[in-house]
């Protein structure tokens, strides 16, 4: 974990409402693993007061990428950063995706901006057969750079399968004979809930990256609990944001 004064290398509008931010962050880039996040102070003033958590989208040399949509005032400020601006970032935070050799086939399941951590994960999963299932509202919400073997779904049918990403997953898994699968999922909670159910019913190991509002991002505010199946709370920032799907109650 570092508090790092990073330097903006670019902020690019890659889709009507989606932005890609690249910052020079020597310390964070050298330590990060796929699925971890950073807590970003988007302004130097007391507005917004708290940092905003973002998944690490990708790492390239000493740079860190973040993919985000305009959600509120914080992300609006972030989208207006200029090359050379300094941004105060704490990271890398949390526990990322567990990568192990016991699986042949990897399903990456993304919902909307939940696609953010997957380019880094894709790069980290060497020698695996990866299939990416990517669901979004419509084609304007799809940003698929650095993903591989992507199967798309959109809610309005404007691109790929007409329906949600779990329906797409159900359709595809029936068509093929997959072995030794592991699923990694990230997206809005209703989608993760459906994915959790899908993985349990199909007896497929699954890790989910969940989100929450949080103040600190490293365990001191206790503001981001998630209920676990053993009737306790874990902190999304410190114990997650990636959890085994069997461990959490969504």
């Amino acid at each position: 974990m570092h508090i790092e004064k990073t330097i903006v290398q670019f902020v690019e509008k890659v889709k009507p409402n989606i932005f890609l931010l690249k910052v020079l962050a020597k310390n964070i880039s050298s330590k990060a693993t796929a699925g971890q996040f950073c807590n970003i102070k988007v302004s130097e003033t007391d507005f917004p007061l708290l940092r905003r958590p973002f998944s690490i989208h990708n790492i390239e040399n000493e740079s860190v990428y973040f993919l985000f949509d305009i959600h509120g005032e914080g992300t609006k400020i972030l989208s207006n950063k200029k090359v050379g601006d300094k941004i105060d970032i704490i990271g890398p935070l949390g526990n990322g995706f567990n990568i192990d050799d016991n699986y042949e086939t990897i399903f990456l399941v993304a919902g909307g901006i939940g696609v953010a951590p997957f380019p880094f994960l894709t790069k980290s999963l060497t020698n695996k057969k990866i299939i990416t299932f990517y669901g979004a509202r419509n084609k304007d919400y799809i940003y698929d750079k650095n993903l591989i073997n992507v199967k798309y779904s959109t809610d309005d049918g404007s691109y790929g399968f007409h329906g949600n990403v779990i329906e797409l997953l159900e359709k595809e898994i029936g068509k093929n004979d997959f072995h030794n699968i592991k699923i990694y999922g990230c997206g809005p909670t209703p989608m993760l809930k459906a994915l959790q159910k899908f993985s349990l019913e199909n007896k497929i190991d699954c890790e989910l990256s969940v989100e929450s509002a949080m103040a600190c991002g490293f365990g001191i505010c206790q503001g981001c609990p998630i209920e676990t199946t053993d009737n306790s709370y874990k902190l999304i920032c410190k114990d997650g944001p990636v959890f085994n799907s069997k461990e959490i109650i969504l």
Binding site: D46, L49, Q222, G223, C224, P225
Partner: peptide, 22 residues
């Protein structure tokens, strides 16, 4: 155990918390 989520929210120049003494 503390309170169930959501426990915090940002407000103008501040934040509300209801951690519940976890």
């Amino acid at each position: 155990k503390g309170n169930p989520p959501q426990r915090i929210v940002e407000t103008p120049s501040g934040m509300l918390n209801a951690i519940g003494l976890a």
